Computed example of a mutant assay.
Amino acid sequence: IIPPISLSTTFKLAPSGKADSPYYYTEAGNPTRTALEENLAALENAGHCRIFPSGMAAIFSITMLVKSGEHILADEDIYADTISLIKKILQPTHGIEITFTEFTDIYAVKKSLKENTKLVFFESPTNPTLKVIDVEEVTKTVKNFNRDICVVVDNTFISPYFQRPLSFDVDMVIHSCTKYINGHADVLMGAVMTNCEKLDQHLYQMQKCTGSVPSAFDCYLVMRGTKTLHVRMRTHMENAIAVAKFLETCNQIEKVLYPLLESHPQHQIHMKQARGMSGMISFYIKDDEDGSATKMFLNNLQLIQNATSLGAAESLIVRCDMKYEEFSPPLRKGVANNLVRLSVGLEEKEDIIEDLKQALDSITDASGNLESKSGDNHSDFELINSTKGD
């Protein structure tokens, strides 16, 4: 019922000197790792899965498909460390050409494709501005230009429970298993799923030749996490819908970004390609240039922890510009010092909302010029319960 943890780094060989089983050395294969890879492949409806010690290790292994002189086309709004990998290592050291463009604009994607384009990379929803990219439309555009271009989607922000990009002819799907798939903020791991045997063999060689594999114990922990993925994701979504609707009532908030809200600019696209949404919300706080109101809000939170990462049982919040300060536009587009990213956890939604309310009220109390749209005629109880049943 529970797959055993195989801690051995080496396995007994037959008298002939050949492997007596599918395993001979843990870089090349481990029974616990195999069990998790089969598990994750099933979640994404994929034929193959390879796991790595981190999400960035998984992304790096994919980029090793691209040779010097070839071209990567990427969305402008992707994880900051992915941008750093491309700009600081792949471009200067490996001689790889790179173009960043706006993937919500199909014409811009088409115009940016080149004869030497090898890899197209994007996230949906994106980190941190939660743009939703039409996965099917982008993939179709790329494949019509050149069927051999590899299309890669980072699906970390929504999990395979709500979205499966391989069904839209995508070549590879990435997950930082550190986030929702594990769900408990105690494992660092990445995964790549594909239906292509050739791509899977490339990933296997990256595991084997670079030793880029996670421990058996970490594999066991992530397998345990997958057993509750469906339950956790439904609760993350239920809580996030309530929180997002509450935030839209607050006069201290400039804008709320959550794909299930009808106010989201790509709401209809999200509803077409996904069957729900995770607990990820980003929102802009009304603030001065110095970001003092945003800092005050973050400092006054009590239940919600000011910490990076996401997808854990605990609600986590972070100011989005921390990792993007070194980048110039357009890679900072939308990432201002008043943009915060909230990973809504599994606590009672009433408690999450109450914590947000008291922290936002601290801004009002300090400035004296902001009032809640809900007014003084609504009690906290009424405000919280207005979100129930959505």
Results as ranks from 00 to 15, higher is better:
Val151Tyr: 01
Glu137Gln: 11
Ala240Ile: 12
Val135Met: 06
Ser54Gly: 06
Tyr24Ser: 10
Ser315Arg: 04
Pro53His: 07
Ala293Gly: 04
Ile59Met: 15
Ile62Gln: 01
Thr249Asn: 08
Glu238Asp: 06
Lys323Pro: 12
Glu348Arg: 15
Pro128Val: 06
Val256Tyr: 05
Asp218Leu: 03
Ile86Ser: 00
Ala14Gln: 06
Arg50Ile: 01
Ala57Met: 11
Phe381Gly: 08
Gly95Ser: 10
Glu347Gly: 13
Leu298His: 09
Leu360Asn: 01
Asn39Trp: 06
Leu166Trp: 13
Leu90Ile: 14
Asp20Val: 08
Leu360Trp: 05
Asn299Trp: 02
Leu339Met: 11
His378Cys: 11
Val187Pro: 14
Lys255Val: 03
Lys388Trp: 05
Arg275Tyr: 02
Asp77Ala: 10
Phe145Gly: 06
Met223Lys: 05
Ala35Arg: 12
Leu188Trp: 04
Ser176Phe: 01
Asp169His: 08
Pro53Met: 06
Gly190Asn: 00
Leu383Gly: 08
Leu43Lys: 02
Ser386Cys: 11
Leu360Arg: 03
Met271Pro: 06
Phe11Gln: 05
Leu257Pro: 10
Gly190Ser: 00
Asp376Leu: 12
Thr93Gln: 14
Thr9His: 12
Asp380Glu: 14
Pro128Tyr: 08
Lys143Asp: 07
Pro214Ser: 05
Thr104Ser: 10
Arg33Met: 11
Val256His: 09
Gly55Asn: 00
Ala336Leu: 06
Ile353Asp: 08
Thr178Leu: 03
Ile285Asn: 12
Leu73Ser: 07
Glu27Gly: 12
Leu43His: 00
Lys12Ala: 03
Asn182Tyr: 03
Lys88His: 13
Cys196Asp: 11
Ala312Asn: 03
Thr194Asn: 09
Asn146Leu: 07
His270Asn: 02
Asp105Phe: 09
Asn182Leu: 03
Tyr23Glu: 06
Gln207Met: 04
Asp287Ile: 06
Ile181Met: 04
Val192Gln: 08
Leu303Cys: 10
Arg319Lys: 13
Thr249Ile: 10
Gln358Pro: 05
Glu123Ile: 13
Gln201Ser: 14
Lys110Asn: 13
Ala41Ser: 13
Ile1Tyr: 07
Asp77Leu: 14
Val187Arg: 02
Val132Pro: 13
Cys219Leu: 12
Thr178Ala: 08
Val109Gln: 03
Ile72Phe: 04
Asp171Val: 10
Val187Cys: 12
Ala307Asp: 01
Lys67Arg: 15
Glu347Pro: 12
Lys286Trp: 07
Ser54His: 00
Pro125Tyr: 01
Gly211Asn: 02
Gln163Val: 09
Ser315Gly: 10
Ala240Asn: 10
Lys357Met: 13
Pro31Thr: 10
Met277Pro: 14
Thr294Ser: 11
Gln201Cys: 14
Ile72Gln: 02
Glu102Pro: 15
Gln205Ile: 04
Asn127Glu: 07
